[in-house]
Amino acid sequence: MGFHSEDLVRDLTDRARNLRIRVIEMIYGARSGHPGGSLSAADIVAALYFHHLRLDPTRPDWPERDRFILSKGHAAPLLYAALCERGFFDSERLATLRRLDSKLQGHPDRLKTEGVEMTAGALGHGLAVGVGLALAARLDGAAYRTYVLLGDGEIQAGIIWEAAMMAAKYGLDNLTAILDYNDVQLDGPVHEIMPLEPVKAKWESFGWHTIEIDGHNMRRILEALDEATHVHARPTVIIAHTVKGKGVSFMENKSTWHGRAPGEEEYKIAVAELREGVNG
């Protein structure tokens, strides 16, 4: 396991907070978007984009880069904020989210946005695509790793388990799935709409190495990502328990904030709360 200094953890926590502020600004500006699932995954995405992933923003097509697929594509604002902060494009572009002619589509489009590995957002695709990338890396003897961020509602889709079976069959230890387990989906609590439990046992029974963490504990996120790189002959899933709408009091754990934009007052309060870190 790598050692993660206090400074690193603090820096990444700040990064995550900045991503959350960006997300709220973008969705408020667009008058449309999905804040809840962007806020819940912000710590995970910060750990990936500002520490863990091997990337080169000047060469988005660098063959040896790690691949990250945002399978829960409705968290697009979070991905765009991370790509921007990582230097893939200028911050002015963030204000164009969901506008006509924008390179920032409502859901990620690999043909329009530098650094977006795969078009996604219709749910259920990312894990299978990640299996394909991981198989290709093995065929090529390439060292890059593939990461797939899944929503919890998303894994209700059967194709996720088709892909999970296949990843285990081929022993894809270069593939890491991360489950953003915030327990809220569009229509309500995941445990009411379609329960996932026992979710850890499900992945284990499919042949995966599992790591269960608090998805807002930066140190644990970093340790889990490291652990996954040392697992042999099995894919890893990091089950990250998170809070939907994390960091904005009135958005937390509310399915109503799955897919609506804040009004002006809500926007001001949300940004103020995130700046102060009252909930983070």
Binding site: R110, V131, L135
Partner: peptide, 18 residues
């Protein structure tokens, strides 16, 4: 891929991306 056509197509997509 076994009897998993939707998975097959998306896995093919990943292979094509690489």
């Amino acid at each position: 891929v076994g009897v998993a056509e939707a998975n097959m197509v998306d896995v093919a997509v990943g292979l094509a991306l690489a």
